[in-house]
């Protein structure tokens, strides 16, 4: 565990809290893409199926392979799952009337189908768990596309929404640094599937980061895109 990895995880965790705080404080989820949030629940669900493995080890008192890192990962995985499901739940219950569904027009099959095909072809091992893990990595890389499309459609984002997007994009950028660090310091560390997907994911945020920093520098509350 290096400083980049832990910062990335905390930034990711912060993104959930920023979004939940925004929704609770303003009683609105305006400007937030439900489709992106739904994709994140799918991403975490497919990726963290190994939680059952950890659960299995715990209820059989098989603690030999449970390390501090396992406990940290397990704790964070449960938090990420709970937070993403809670966000989707809020957007479909008490905040449904404020949801930007009419402008959230991205067709999810356009990312789901290619990710599924890629996961079936390019994976480390042709097993169900491994394919679902790979699918989640590919899907996470592009899951922000409905959100970006909504942002372009709207032309601007309020302060908390843009902080949220910065946290989501920034976390993967920090993971890139973490991978470089691990590649340099750990003799056999290699995970090209995550590296390529992580690079694509970070690159998708490129424009957004630019406008975010322009906004921060100019001290505006809202992030405005050029028309």
């Amino acid at each position: 565990m290096n400083i980049f990895r832990i910062s990335a995880d905390l930034l990711h965790l912060a993104s959930f809290f920023i979004l939940i705080f925004k929704m609770k404080a303003t009683k609105s989820c305006k400007g937030i893409s439900f489709k992106t949030q739904l994709m994140y629940t799918l991403v975490f669900t497919c990726r963290y199926l190994d939680l059952f493995h950890v659960l299995g080890m715990m209820i059989t008192f098989n603690f030999a392979h449970i390390t501090g890192l396992t406990l940290y990962n397990t704790f964070m995985k449960i938090l990420f799952l709970a937070a993403s499901y809670y966000i989707v739940y809020l957007m479909r219950t008490e905040l449904k009337s404020t949801s930007d569904d009419a402008r959230d027009t991205f067709v999810l099959w356009h990312i789901l189908a290619p990710c599924a095909v890629l996961a079936l072809i390019f994976n480390a091992q042709f097993t169900i768990l491994e394919i679902l893990w790979t699918f989640s990595i590919y899907l996470e890389a592009v899951a922000v596309m409905p959100q970006l499309m909504l942002l372009i459609e709207t032309g601007e984002a309020d302060s908390l929404s843009s902080h949220y997007m910065f946290a989501v994009g920034g976390y993967r950028a920090l993971y890139l640094v973490n991978w470089v660090y691990r590649y340099a310091t750990e003799p056999y560390y290699s995970n090209w599937i995550a590296w390529i997907a992580g690079f694509v994911q970070t690159a998708l945020f490129g424009d957004f980061f630019y406008y975010y920093f322009v906004k921060i520098m100019s001290g505006d509350a809202a992030l405005k895109l050029p028309t």
């Binding site: 890192l69 990962n73 995985k77 480390a124 003799p187 560390y189 290699s190 995970n191």
Partner: peptide
Amino acid sequence: PGVIYTHDEL
């Protein structure tokens, strides 16, 4: 070490 494949990240 053969294929070193890490699922130790989030």
